[in-house]
């Protein structure tokens, strides 16, 4: 897994413009939101937001929501090529997917190896955003020991959700041979209904219903609630955290199910029709992998180089 993570890092470093953008794109995405909010509320304070949420500082409201969302890593419209699903899509386009999947390791290991790079990247983005807003713009979260612990818990949940959604997204990409499918089914809806920078209860139905069943909403709300003391979706931050954690565990199970390779010939479990295609690829490659282990080892050496 470590070797695959290093491989992903070296691939990213090869495209230096993209790498630079990965480091700063979260700021670019945030600026129009911050400026629109500033213009709408004529400054930093917002009476309207205070009436709705009890929090008068719209800047703090938006920054906290966006930091949490950045940790999730799927909300950034500029990073459409920076995620597990797109890493897989990239391998498909360049014709190296089969070569990679022939490596004598489980496919889930390959995906998690790729995911490690993105965990590091999005943690970096969330941290720099939080510190930048705090040190430069006088952003004012309520920092208590309990709040910080809960915020870290929320970040952990978001990071794990990031990887599991990435794995499921990779499944969609492989099944449909179309990386936009992931974007439209997971990426943008999760962004839209999470309430990262608006008040969820103002959304019309059925958007509001989707927001209340969206795991990302609870994680974002828990993070914000931990650092402001006022969660919006639930009565307490702990409940929001437990809800987000429960959703994440369910997503992990789903992601594990998608890439389960333990059964005979890798055929066990075909729960969802569109995943059948992936299972078929897995079965074929598993047999190939057994037959050509020495070849796979040599390919692995090439990949590491």
């Amino acid at each position: 897994m470590a070797q695959i993570s290093r491989n992903q890092l070296s691939l990213s470093l090869r495209y230096q413009n993209r790498f630079r953008m990965e480091l700063i794109s979260h700021v670019f995405i945030l600026i129009p939101i911050i400026l629109a909010a500033w213009a709408f509320s004529d400054g930093r304070g917002s009476e309207r937001l205070e009436q709705l949420t009890g929090l008068s500082d719209q800047f703090t409201f938006i920054i906290l929501g966006f930091v949490a969302f950045t940790a999730l890593g799927i909300g950034n419209m500029m990073l459409q090529e920076s995620h597990i699903a797109f890493a897989i899509s990239y391998e498909m386009m360049t014709g190296t997917l089969e070569r990679m999947f022939l490596m004598p390791v489980r496919r889930i290991t390959i995906l998690l190896g790729i995911g490690n790079y993105y965990i590091a990247l999005f943690t970096f983005q969330a941290l720099t955003l939080f510190l930048g807003a705090w040190l430069i713009f006088g952003f004012e979260p309520e920092l208590t020991t309990r709040g910080l612990l809960f915020a870290l818990w929320a970040v952990l949940v978001l990071v794990v959700t990031n990887v599991t959604l990435g794995i499921i997204g990779a499944a969609l990409t492989l099944a449909f041979k179309d990386n936009q499918m992931y974007m439209l089914v997971i990426h943008r809806p999760a962004a839209l209904v999470s309430g990262a920078y608006f008040f969820i209860d103002l959304m019309p139905q059925p958007m509001k219903f989707l927001a209340y069943i969206n795991p990302v909403s609870y994680a974002v709300d828990a993070f914000r609630g931990a650092l402001t003391g006022t969660p919006l979706l639930t009565d307490s931050t702990l409940i929001a955290l437990l809800a987000a954690s429960a959703y994440t565990v369910a997503l992990c199970l789903l992601a594990g199910l998608v890439y389960r390779l333990d059964g005979p010939n890798g055929t066990r479990g075909k729960p969802i029709p569109f995943l059948v295609a992936i299972m078929d690829i897995q079965r074929t490659n598993r047999i190939r992998c057994r037959q050509s282990r020495s070849l796979a080892v040599s390919i692995r050496i090439t990949l590491v180089r």
Binding site: A37, F40, P189, A191, L192, Y197, F198, F199
Partner: peptide, 17 residues
């Protein structure tokens, strides 16, 4: 759904503020 997903977050931001 693409256009809706692009435009809606900003409209909801306006609704909020």
């Amino acid at each position: 759904i693409g256009p809706f997903l692009m435009i809606a977050p900003f409209v909801f931001l306006g609704d909020t503020l």
